[in-house]
Structures are given as C-alpha cells and as structure tokens.
Simulated assay, not measured.
Amino acid sequence: MARAARSPFGGERDGGYVTAEAATAIPVLLIFGVALLWGLMAAMAQIQCVDAARAGARAAARQEPDHAAIRAAEQAAPKGARVVVRREGDLVRVTVEAHAPGPRALTLDLEAEAVALAEESVGPS
C-alpha cells in the first residue's frame, strides 16, 4: 500500500498538483480578464454612439446647420466615428457608426440612431 510522502513541516506533500493547477488556471483567468475588459470597452463605445446621436439630433432639431450638428455628434462619439444627418419632413435623424476598440479580429460595428422633431414644426397652438 502506497503512502503519501510527508513534508518536513508536518503535513503531506501534494506532489506538485497545486503548481500544475495554477499553471493552467492563470492563463485562463488572464484570457477571461482580457475578454471582460474588451467587452466593457465595446459597451462604453456603444453608449458613446448613443450619446453622440442624441447630441446631434438635438442640435439639428434646434435648426443649427448640419455641420454644427455633425460637430456636436463627433465631439461625443468615439474616435473615427461616422455621423450622418438626414431630414425627413419634420423629423431629423442622426446616425452614428463606429468600430469597437480592440484587435481587428474582434472589431464590432457599432451603430446608434436618434430621431428628433424639428422645432420649426412645433408652433403655438
């Protein structure tokens, strides 16, 4: 019958199992941490796109020129975002498109759109 080796400190030795488990667990935890960080960055970029579309729609609804509405949206948008302002009757529609930060293989296309009623169409009743 085999017996476990005793440690000089009074306990039984584990034969290196803890070291092997740590060697496999640490890379998995690192990959999970990087994936979590990337997901948070992508979520923050999506929120920036939503905020940018709203800012652009508010500016365009106040009858500011299109270039001013685009500038307002670009200031709130992630770097490299594309902003499009369209007028459809009494409505102003602003679309913001961007790429999520990260390696090219993990890039997501993000898009947000906001619609506002132009102030000129709202008159005294």
Results as ranks from 00 to 15, higher is better:
residue 17 Y to D: 02
residue 57 A to Q: 00
residue 61 A to S: 14
residue 9 F to K: 03
residue 23 A to M: 13
residue 103 P to N: 04
residue 81 A to T: 10
residue 105 A to E: 06
residue 18 V to R: 03
residue 75 Q to W: 15
residue 125 S to V: 10
residue 80 G to V: 06
residue 94 V to K: 08
residue 63 Q to I: 04
residue 116 A to K: 02
residue 35 A to M: 15
residue 119 E to H: 00
residue 33 G to C: 11
residue 100 A to V: 10
residue 26 I to D: 06
residue 2 A to G: 03
residue 121 S to Y: 14
residue 57 A to S: 13
residue 113 E to C: 11
residue 123 G to Y: 00
residue 80 G to P: 10
residue 62 R to S: 09
residue 13 R to S: 10
residue 66 D to N: 10
residue 37 L to K: 01
residue 112 A to H: 01
residue 28 V to K: 02
residue 63 Q to A: 11
residue 31 I to A: 14
residue 92 V to H: 00
residue 87 R to H: 13
residue 45 A to H: 05
residue 125 S to I: 05
residue 32 F to D: 01
residue 23 A to K: 03
residue 6 R to K: 15
residue 76 A to Y: 12
residue 91 L to G: 00
residue 104 R to D: 11
residue 105 A to F: 15
residue 109 D to G: 07
residue 72 A to N: 13
residue 70 I to H: 08
residue 110 L to K: 01
residue 93 R to H: 10
residue 114 A to C: 01
residue 16 G to P: 01
residue 114 A to T: 04
residue 51 D to C: 04
residue 82 R to C: 02
residue 98 A to T: 00
residue 79 K to A: 15
residue 45 A to R: 06
residue 3 R to A: 04
residue 75 Q to H: 14
residue 40 L to K: 10
residue 72 A to K: 13
residue 23 A to C: 07
residue 36 L to F: 13
residue 98 A to Y: 06
residue 82 R to A: 14
residue 44 M to L: 15
residue 87 R to Y: 03
residue 27 P to L: 10
residue 113 E to P: 00
residue 62 R to A: 11
residue 14 D to Q: 05
residue 54 R to A: 06
residue 79 K to V: 15
residue 5 A to T: 07
residue 37 L to V: 14
residue 118 A to Q: 02
residue 38 W to I: 06
residue 70 I to Q: 14
residue 112 A to K: 04
residue 82 R to F: 13
residue 6 R to C: 07
residue 59 A to K: 08
residue 6 R to Y: 02
residue 28 V to H: 05
residue 36 L to K: 02
residue 99 H to R: 09
residue 96 V to G: 09
residue 59 A to W: 09
residue 108 L to E: 02
residue 109 D to K: 11
residue 110 L to A: 09
residue 40 L to S: 15
residue 15 G to D: 00
residue 5 A to S: 07
residue 36 L to N: 05
residue 74 E to D: 15
residue 73 A to Q: 07
residue 111 E to D: 05
residue 51 D to Q: 09
residue 53 A to V: 02
residue 94 V to F: 05
residue 110 L to E: 08
residue 95 T to K: 12
residue 37 L to I: 15
residue 80 G to T: 08
residue 1 M to Q: 07
residue 46 Q to I: 07
residue 124 P to E: 14
residue 86 R to L: 13
residue 78 P to R: 12
residue 55 A to L: 06
residue 30 L to K: 04
residue 82 R to V: 11
residue 111 E to F: 07
residue 26 I to H: 03
residue 87 R to A: 12
residue 46 Q to R: 11
residue 92 V to C: 04
residue 52 A to M: 08
residue 93 R to Q: 13
residue 46 Q to P: 04
residue 48 Q to R: 11
residue 113 E to A: 08
residue 118 A to Y: 03
residue 26 I to E: 04
residue 120 E to R: 14
residue 113 E to N: 03
residue 125 S to T: 08
residue 62 R to F: 03
residue 46 Q to D: 10
residue 65 P to K: 13
residue 89 G to P: 12
residue 4 A to D: 12
residue 1 M to H: 09
residue 19 T to I: 12
residue 11 G to A: 09
residue 24 T to Y: 07
residue 124 P to K: 10
residue 48 Q to K: 14
residue 41 M to N: 06
residue 36 L to S: 09
residue 118 A to P: 00
residue 57 A to D: 08
residue 44 M to T: 12
residue 69 A to V: 10
